[in-house]
Simulated assay, not measured.
Amino acid sequence: MKTLQQQLGNYGLYHRSKRNVLTHLLGIPLIVFAVLCLLARIQIPLGGLVIDGGQLIVFVSVVYYLMLSVSLGLIMAVLLTILLVGAQPIAAMAFTPWLTISVGLFVFGWILQFAGHYFEGKKPAFIDDISGLIIGPLYVTAELLFMLGCYKKLEQQVTDIAGPTKP
């Protein structure tokens, strides 16, 4: 398994434009939220317990993030749980509003993503490496933390791999 620095650095190779990163700060959370809204409607019986698809994907994602970094994994656990709690009422809606909201958010999130990659002049990272789909949410969280002055050493390690950010 690649290290946290390698994962973020490789993803960062496709995200050096500030405009691209900014579109991702909104687009990726919208996509994740939309996916959780869609998956939260799927009921999965586990013994005497019933979980939904959103809970399962959050659990699996958080385990992966924790393997990369305990502190970032815990931050992701909190953020994904907040998104999941917000997704539950939407998943409980009647079919048409649930699907309209979920798909609408999903499409809008991807429009933002592709607009950002237009500014970047590069294709999305997941085209070359499917792991970009799980690294994307971690990357935007890390970028936001970098903007807040946190994780300076990690920021430098990512920049060493991906290069400097461009205006």
Rank of each mutant, 00 (worst) to 15 (best):
M1D: 09
L4W: 01
Q5P: 00
Q6C: 03
Q7A: 14
Q7H: 15
Q7P: 07
L8Q: 00
L8M: 02
G9I: 09
G9P: 01
N10D: 15
Y11N: 04
Y11R: 00
L13I: 13
L13A: 04
L13P: 00
L13C: 10
Y14F: 11
Y14L: 02
H15R: 00
H15A: 02
H15I: 04
R16D: 01
S17V: 01
K18G: 13
L22Y: 06
L25V: 03
L26A: 13
L26M: 10
I28L: 01
I28V: 15
L30M: 13
I31V: 15
V32K: 00
V32Q: 00
L36M: 05
A40F: 14
R41P: 06
I42E: 13
Q43W: 13
I44A: 01
P45M: 03
L46K: 08
L46Q: 09
G47S: 08
G48Q: 13
L49N: 09
V50Y: 15
V50A: 12
V50T: 12
I51A: 07
D52W: 04
Q55D: 08
L56C: 06
L56A: 07
I57F: 04
V58F: 07
F59Q: 05
V60H: 00
V62A: 07
Y64V: 15
Y64N: 09
Y65E: 05
M67F: 15
L68F: 06
L72F: 07
G73Y: 03
A77Y: 02
A77K: 00
V78N: 11
V78W: 09
L80M: 13
I82Q: 01
I82E: 00
L83K: 05
L84P: 00
V85M: 08
A87H: 08
Q88R: 15
Q88D: 13
A91P: 03
A91W: 13
M93N: 08
F95S: 14
F95Y: 14
W98Y: 10
W98M: 10
L99D: 02
I101G: 05
L105K: 09
L105R: 08
F106R: 08
G109A: 10
G109W: 08
I111Q: 05
L112Q: 01
G116T: 02
G116E: 06
H117R: 00
H117Y: 06
Y118G: 14
G121A: 07
K122S: 08
K122N: 07
A125F: 05
F126I: 12
S131I: 13
S131H: 11
S131D: 13
S131C: 02
G132V: 11
G132P: 09
L138G: 02
Y139L: 07
A142C: 14
A142H: 08
L145T: 00
L148C: 09
K152G: 00
K153W: 12
L154A: 04
E155Y: 10
E155L: 04
Q157I: 04
Q157L: 09
T159M: 14
T159A: 15
D160H: 11
I161V: 14
I161T: 11
A162K: 13
K166M: 10
K166A: 14
P167I: 15
P167K: 15
